[in-house]
């Protein structure tokens, strides 16, 4: 049984989550199970991707502000090339745009996560440098947790639920892009089998953020106290919300370790893409990856 303070914390964190994120699990599941009037546009090859870029432009994060991508104009240089080479060039161009699109979505989610953290009780009373450290190390773990809500075994919802990009298509891209999403699908399949709802996820994401063992924290005890109150609230909430699944809490805590591994792998891949592909990384993401692990 949870005391009054714990219940208030659960409610405040759930409210903060619902206000901060444009997409949540309930919305995503309605779309993924075909319970909405308009089904998402399915992206399963380069042609459908390019069609989606045109039709979903308003919802694709990188096009919201009519931003033109540098790589796009650079690659548009006219020169006579054999058809095969031309096709290859188009493919590379589309892959680069897809990568930028993923980056913009990540940046958008980092912004939402920051708003969520700020709305969490007592977060803003922490030392500002500690708030930065907590976010720096948490955002990718939180991002892959939230991404699982938008995934099923066949693909991933994009463009605020207006598009669905298939797992096979992502796998068919050239290396290293093809290696980017597959580990996230594998994690999502295991994670989604726990059947968490948005109220559980809100507390789990809060627990990811308020973590006392992030490198460089100044005031560890105060972060640990906040972490402890969230973890206790999560434990009580899971018992009440999933009375038939008594091992859900320890299983969920194990996922924190899986997420750390997933982020380490992801950071290595981003480093590889940066070196091999000569592609630019958004300044916010650069800040986050710099000296991370």
């Amino acid at each position: 049984c949870m005391e009054g303070d714990g219940k208030t914390l659960v409610r405040q964190i759930h409210d903060a989550y619902m206000k901060s994120f444009t997409m949540n699990k309930a919305k995503a599941r309605l779309i993924l199970t075909g319970k909405t009037s308009e089904p998402p546009f399915i992206i399963h090859d380069m042609d459908t991707f390019q069609l989606a870029e045109r039709t979903l432009a308003a919802y694709m994060a990188h096009m919201v502000k009519g931003e033109r991508l540098e790589s796009e104009s650079e690659l548009r240089v006219e020169h006579v090339t054999p058809a095969v080479e031309c096709e290859e060039l188009q493919q590379r161009e589309a892959e680069a745009r897809l990568f930028h699109c993923c980056q913009s979505t990540s940046v958008e989610t980092v912004t939402e996560l920051t708003e969520f953290a700020k709305a969490m009780p007592d977060f803003q009373t922490l030392d500002l440098n500690d708030q930065v450290t907590l976010l720096k190390y948490a955002v990718h773990e939180a991002l892959f947790t939230l991404l699982a809500s938008c995934m099923n075994k066949d693909g991933l919802l994009v463009a605020r639920g207006r598009g669905f990009i298939t797992r096979e298509f992502l796998k068919s891209l050239r290396r290293p892009f093809s290696d980017m999403m597959e580990p996230k699908f594998q994690f999502a399949t295991r994670f989604n089998s726990m059947d968490l709802d948005d109220s559980d996820l809100a507390l789990f994401v809060a627990a990811i953020i308020c973590c006392g063992d992030r490198p460089g924290l100044v005031d560890i005890p105060v972060v640990e106290r906040l972490q402890e109150s969230i973890i206790q609230a999560l434990r009580h909430h899971l018992l009440a919300n999933h009375p038939d699944d008594t091992f859900l809490f320890p299983r969920l805590l194990q996922k924190l370790a899986d997420l750390r591994e997933l982020v380490t792998e992801h950071a290595q891949l981003i480093q590889e893409i940066k070196t091999l592909e000569d592609t630019s990384l958004h300044p916010l993401l650069q800040e986050i990856y710099k000296d991370m692990y």
Binding site: K65, V110, A117, V132, L135, P283, E287
Partner: peptide, 20 residues
């Protein structure tokens, strides 16, 4: 502080990083 300029900004106000 300089190393995490945008994160600082986001925490102190809600400037959209897309604009930066």
């Amino acid at each position: 502080k300089e190393k995490h300029k945008i994160l600082h900004q986001l925490l102190q106000n809600s400037t959209s990083p897309v604009d930066l």
